[in-house]
Amino acid sequence: MIDFGFGLSPSSRVNLDLRDKELFSKLIETESDALKCMACGSCTASCSAGVFEETSLRSALLNLQNGNKEKALNLLSHCMFCGKCTMVCPRGINTRHLILSINKIYQAR
């Protein structure tokens, strides 16, 4: 795709060709809950680590869907596993295990 350079704000275009479908489907296999997320952001709002540095499961999931693996891992690297996000999730997602699985699947080289 060609960037003509006329945009005022940086492009938020998603290049789906770059997306690693294999890893994401592997994630869905172990964590079917990942698709339940409706991106409400309760997890991000309550996050203990978010006080210090941007930490967001919601954004991480979106980034994974869009193929931004590095950014997603970055958004979760400060997680302290305290479990507040699990308590507040309106969809009842087991967020802690989801974070664990994302780390396990995407960190593996």
Partner: peptide, 12 residues
Amino acid sequence: SNTKLSYDYAPM
């Protein structure tokens, strides 16, 4: 199985 996962607590 879990202890090898990386983390970054520098911001803390």
